[in-house]
C-alpha cells in the first residue's frame, strides 16, 4: 500500500513538474502554445489525410462516415429544437407583455430624494455613462445622444412622485422603449429598493411578429448589462458622491491580451 501511495505521489509530482516546466507565464503564452499545438495538429491531420488517400476504401471508413453523419444529424436536430423553443419563448413573452430587461438595487436614500434626482435630467446626465443630454428645455421632456450612436427623445409617461417614474423613449427610426423606475421604501436601514425595467413600447403597433419578438428579446438581453451599470452608478453617486473608478491609474507594461481585458475595467 505504502509503495502504491509512493508511486501515485511520484507520478503526481512529476506531472506537476512537467506542467511547471512549460514556459506558460500569462495569457499570451497560453495563446502562443495554443497556436503551436494547432499548427502541429493541422500538420498531423494533413499527413493522415495523404496517407488515407493512398489506401483503398475499407468497411472502417464507411462506419466513420455513418457515425459522423449520425452525430451531425443529432446536432442539427438539437439546434432546430432549441431554436423552435427560443422563438416560442420570445413570442409567449411578447404576447404576455413580458419582453423586458430589468434590474434592481437597494440604495441608502429616501424614495423622495431618489425620485427628485431621477426627474432632473441635468443631474442624471452627470451620473449616466455613454449618453449626453442635448436638450431639456421642455418640462418632462428631454433629448439625449448616445455616444455609440443615435439620438432619442424622452418624455415622462408615468409619474407617481416618490414611488415611480416612467419614460417613453423614441429613437430616430421610430423604435420606442418604455423605461420605468419604481422605488420602494424599506424599514430598518435597508435603503430603498430601486427597480429599473425597460420594455419595447408597443402602443399602437399591435403584437410583435415572431421575428420581431426574437430580435427584441436579443436587443433587451444585450441592453441588460448597461442598464445594471447605470443603476450601479446611480447608487454610487447617491451614496458616496462619486463613481468608483481605476481609469487613468498607473500601470506597468501590459501584454496585448491584458490591454484588451483591462479595457473592460470601469
Amino acid at each position: 500500500m505504502a509503495i502504491a501511495l509512493q508511486r501515485v505521489r511520484d507520478a503526481s509530482e512529476s506531472a506537476a513538474r512537467a506542467l511547471k516546466g512549460l514556459p506558460v507565464k500569462n495569457v499570451d503564452h497560453v495563446l502562443a502554445w495554443y497556436g503551436v499545438a494547432n499548427a502541429v495538429g493541422s500538420a498531423l491531420k494533413r499527413r493522415m489525410r495523404k496517407k488515407a488517400a493512398r489506401l483503398p476504401p475499407s468497411g472502417g471508413s464507411r462506419e466513420v462516415v455513418a457515425v459522423v453523419a449520425g452525430v451531425t444529424a443529432l446536432a442539427v436536430g438539437a439546434y432546430a429544437v432549441r431554436r423552435h423553443y427560443l422563438r416560442k419563448h420570445a413570442m409567449d413573452q411578447a404576447e404576455r407583455g413580458q419582453l423586458q430587461a430589468s434590474t434592481s438595487l437597494a440604495i441608502q436614500a429616501t424614495p423622495r430624494s431618489l425620485y427628485d434626482l431621477l426627474t432632473n435630467p441635468q443631474r442624471l446626465s452627470e451620473i449616466m455613462e455613454g449618453v449626453e443630454l442635448m436638450d431639456a428645455s421642455t418640462q418632462g421632456a428631454s433629448r439625449w445622444r448616445v455616444r455609440s450612436g443615435g439620438e432619442y427623445d424622452v418624455h415622462i409617461a408615468d409619474d407617481a412622485p416618490g414611488s415611480l417614474v416612467g419614460w417613453r423613449i423614441i429613437g430616430a427610426s421610430a423604435e420606442a422603449y418604455r423605461a420605468t423606475v419604481s422605488i420602494e421604501g424599506t424599514d430598518g436601514g435597508h435603503g430603498a429598493r430601486v427597480r429599473v425595467q425597460v420594455e419595447p413600447d408597443r402602443s399602437g403597433n399591435g403584437h410583435a411578429s415572431v421575428a420581431d419578438a426574437v430580435e427584441l428579446q436579443a436587443a433587451l438581453k444585450a441592453m441588460a448589462p448597461a442598464i445594471a451599470k447605470q443603476l450601479r452608478r446611480l447608487k454610487q453617486f447617491v451614496e458616496t458622491g462619486e463613481i468608483a473608478t481605476t481609469r487613468g491609474q498607473p500601470v506597468g507594461r501590459r501584454s496585448m491580451i491584458g490591454k484588451l481585458l483591462a479595457r473592460g475595467d470601469s
Binding site: T240, E242, A244, T245, G248, Q249, P250, G252, R253
Partner: peptide, 27 residues
C-alpha cells in the same frame, strides 16, 4: 516612479510607471 508589477506566474518586476493623480474628490 518605481512600482512592483506582476509579470506572470512566479515573476514580478520593478518598472518605471507614471505617478498617480487625483481622480475623484474623495481621493
Amino acid at each position: 516612479m518605481k512600482a512592483v508589477c506582476w509579470q506572470g506566474i512566479h515573476e514580478v518586476a520593478v518598472e518605471d510607471v507614471p505617478e498617480p493623480h487625483l481622480v475623484n474628490p474623495r481621493d
